[in-house]
Design a protein around this nucleic acid. Structure first.
Lengths: 208, 208
DNA sequence: ATAGTTAAGTGGTCAGACCACCATATGATA
DNA sequence: TATCATATGGTGGTCTGACCACTTAACTAT
């Protein structure tokens, strides 16, 4: 039946605890391999399906990585995956257009500001070539442009959340700023004018 | 076999997506009932075990609540189990921590600015009473303080995402700002000094 | 030695079987 | 009629056993 004598606890939660203990007592580190599902089931005297429920939950949280044919491995935990999943549920509940667009803009502004100190001449060239790329429509330009900035902002979490919002806003309303905006922002990077970034964004009016 | 024609995706992840869609298209709210596991498996042409893997993961995340003999219900997101579990697995990653704290701060700053135009004398009093409430520790004050600001910012999405970040930062590092900070922010609201809000936040140094 | 084949191990998935539990319909009783 | 016990069906909880797809490594045959 189960693993411990806890009466109410579900088996998969027990398994979760046991796996944690196992990791602990064996000093497993990210990259190390966990026992196979069958072995775990056997050792913990639980069904393989229960073990899998625990492992799948861990996988979804980003705690482990699973490779078919190979095995299950510990991974370095980053909340990105979890945040991503939860956000997708939050977003679906609050798809107010206004909230979405404002929040997105906020994140873009902050990315632009955080990225500021990491922007070099090469980046400026790349940004410029994006705005001049005639193969992209205005939305694609927008995404490419800010993707670059988020990368330079070096905050994966911020980037992920923004990405999610962008995906959602896509179904609601496509958004890009006035052409002039991008040029002006690049200009600010060129002239090393940090203060004006905030102002530039504030001038933007949210419209579809 | 599966639900969609996505080849690489695991079934339980497809199921997750489908459930999300189901919730969306049926306008389900917290407290509402989901179809039974057997029914879902049938409708989505997946095995019950796969459906369960998805549901267990959702349960762990606090997205659903499950009552034996009754059914599965949507719940308002409560991260209890997740937080507890994660904290027992967490391997402190500096980048993660930094990303999280910065992102959180960004959202708090923007909330403070957006809320600005909706803040009245009553709000100022309430904020003040929060900072003076001796029954709260500094973290609780922080949360209560910004909860109020997010409410006034009237952007539910921003608030929810912030809440999410706060939940996670809890597992990594408790965070509140210097006592003086809150007083100064209130002061800025009082004196109707919008410009300085940005500066006040910028002065904050993220420290672990 | 090298290339090709085979076998064993692993995760991915499903179907079916019980169990424990809950709500409700059913029916007997007061 | 009103009340309470009980049967029944639905639901989640769990296990078992069976395949499949894929990877790795050992084992051939060349």
């Amino acid at each position: 039946m189960a693993v411990s004598m806890s009466p109410k606890q579900k088996v998969y939660q027990d398994v979760l605890q046991e796996i944690r203990k196992y990791i602990d007592s064996n000093d497993l580190e990210p990259g190390d391999k966990l026992p196979s599902e069958r072995e775990l089931a056997d050792n913990l005297q639980a069904g393989r399906s229960s073990v899998r429920e625990a492992l799948r939950a861990m996988e979804l949280l980003g705690l482990i990585e699973t490779r078919r044919g190979e095995g299950t491995y510990l991974s370095t935990y980053r909340p990105y995956q979890t945040v991503e999943l939860l956000s997708s549920f939050i977003l679906q509940e609050n798809n107010t257009k206004k909230d979405l667009l404002i929040t997105k803009k906020v994140m873009e502004k902050e990315a632009a500001k955080i990225a500021y100190r990491n922007i070099n001449d090469k980046d400026i060239n790349q940004l410029q070539s994006i705005t001049h790329n005639s193969e992209l429509d205005s939305n694609e330009k927008h995404v490419a442009f800010f993707n670059h900035l988020f990368r330079k902002a070096d905050n994966l979490l911020l980037a992920k959340v923004w990405q999610l919002m962008d995906d959602f806003s896509y179904t609601i309303a496509k958004l890009s700023y006035d052409k002039v905006f991008y040029k002006e922002l690049i200009q600010l990077y060129k002239s090393r004018n940090y203060e004006m970034i905030e102002e530039l964004f504030d001038k933007l009016s949210i419209r579809k």
